[in-house]
Design a protein around this nucleic acid. Sequence first.
DNA 1: TCCAATGTTTCGCC
DNA 2: GGGCGAAACATTGG
Length: 244
Amino acid sequence: MPEGPSIVILKELLQPFKGKKILSVEGNAKIDLDKLQGLKVVDVKSWGKHLLICFNGSYIRIHLLMFGTYRINEEKEGVLPRLAFTFKNGTVNFYTCSVKYLEEEVDTAYDWDADIMSESWDALKAEKKIKSLKTEKVCDLLLDQEIFSGVGNIIKNEVLFRTQIHPESLANKLPSKKLKELIKETRNYSFDFYHWKKTFELKKHWLIYNKKICPKCKQAVKKEHLGKGKRLTCFCENCQKLYE
DNA sequence: TCCAATGTTTCGCC
DNA sequence: GGGCGAAACATTGG
């Protein structure tokens, strides 16, 4: 469920609750629910994979991790919500997610320029961050939430195929032009992901992720667990160039 | 039935 | 202390 574009969609679905007061809170989240009672939602934002329900001077941070789900104006059967809100105009339920309540201003808490889906996304800043890094493989680079906040494993695989870069290429060995292309395509694909997710045709557009045959050269797709997190990486050895 | 998967944090060990 | 690996959390589909 949860890469950056999916969280943007969730944020949009929650906009009707902006300006509304929390009438009641429930859930098994390990936070002080009493503190939330009666608070007015002043905004609902997202930063990468974080959903941020904002109040005056504090906010709730929800991360759906791998299996998190939600329901709006309905509930899942036989499962207790981690966090559930009742508003005058509806209900919101979150399941199997990480919940934190932070008593600080949300605007100063995040580097908004790093959010791949944000209108304040700053490609040049990302490039500078990358150039300040030591040797790093591009498969790790793309999953770095400080640089590409919101990028997940699917986006990683698809972007590397689109740009024809081998996942084990070293980031600092990419020619400058290629690096710029990678950064640009990461944002582009994230927006494609967003649109396809909305129309339920995301899988249909996968070129390399979960595929058996390279759509370009018809060679078998290689699948390996690469990088620091040993995440599943699908790539074409023939089409994706290794920079080292 | 078992395993792996769109993720992150924490703990233990060397 | 850094780096690495494993565990923890937990759901769903192949």
